[in-house]
Simulated scan of single mutants.
Amino acid sequence: MNDRGTELFEAIKQKRGLREKSPFSPFPNGGLEIKATCGSVPTPMECAKKGIEKPDMGETRIHLLRGYDWKAHHRETNNLVGILWDFINGTPKIVAVFFGTDLDEQDWGKIVHPREGGGRTTSVSIMPRHGVKKMYCNWIAVKQDPAYINFLNNYNKGNLIPL
């Protein structure tokens, strides 16, 4: 954090505001948000129709991956480090990192509020395809594995990530 950020943080701390989210969303001096996703795979029913099983915890997902996105509780997220992860040899590993500095509210979906009795869901905005494409256009690192590179290039209808 730079000097100004440290000053602002200390002021919040002095007011005993560290337990509240509002002073940080957004933080007056800016900052980074880091969000991670393991992407989406077919539902158990869709997998059954294909004669396969939905991957369990610890099982690699790349060969079934249908898409990926990031979620936020508001639509102002910018300076986003977006991580894609997968299980490799039973352990969660980062397989791709993206950075978005030019995101705006339009790069986030409408905020979806939980329905009554909807479990533990919270209000959330899901990044649509054009926001994901913006992040793809600023990829930082991708695992040197054709399965991941081809998936990311194909999903985003591009060829920015070399094999």
Rank of each mutant, 00 (worst) to 15 (best):
S25A: 13
N156Y: 13
V95W: 08
R4W: 11
R129F: 13
G30T: 12
F24T: 05
P28K: 14
H113W: 15
K49R: 12
V132I: 13
P146F: 07
P23F: 09
R61L: 01
H63W: 02
Y68L: 14
R66C: 02
H74E: 14
G90R: 08
A141N: 06
W70G: 02
A48I: 06
H113G: 00
T60P: 01
C137W: 11
C38N: 11
L160K: 15
F27C: 05
N159C: 06
R19Q: 08
T77H: 11
T101M: 06
L160M: 10
T43S: 15
N89W: 01
D69F: 12
E116C: 01
E33R: 14
H74M: 03
P23V: 13
E20G: 02
S25P: 00
P44A: 14
L84S: 02
D86Q: 12
L32N: 15
A96I: 04
P55Q: 02
S125E: 07
V95M: 05
S22M: 03
I161G: 03
E105Q: 11
V142T: 05
A36F: 02
P114G: 13
A36G: 08
P23N: 13
G17S: 04
F98E: 04
A141L: 06
M45A: 14
G31K: 08
G117V: 06
S40C: 11
R19V: 03
G131A: 10
G58R: 09
R16H: 04
V112D: 13
L163H: 08
K54L: 04
T43G: 03
A72S: 15
R129P: 00
L65P: 00
S22N: 01
N89A: 08
H113I: 06
K71Y: 05
G109W: 10
A11K: 11
P42R: 08
P28G: 04
N150P: 00
I111G: 00
D3N: 15
N154Q: 12
E53I: 01
A11G: 01
G39H: 10
G100C: 05
L64Y: 15
N2T: 12
K21S: 07
E105P: 00
D69R: 07
Y136C: 03
K50C: 01
D107M: 06
K35V: 11
I12A: 09
P162D: 05
L160H: 11
S125G: 09
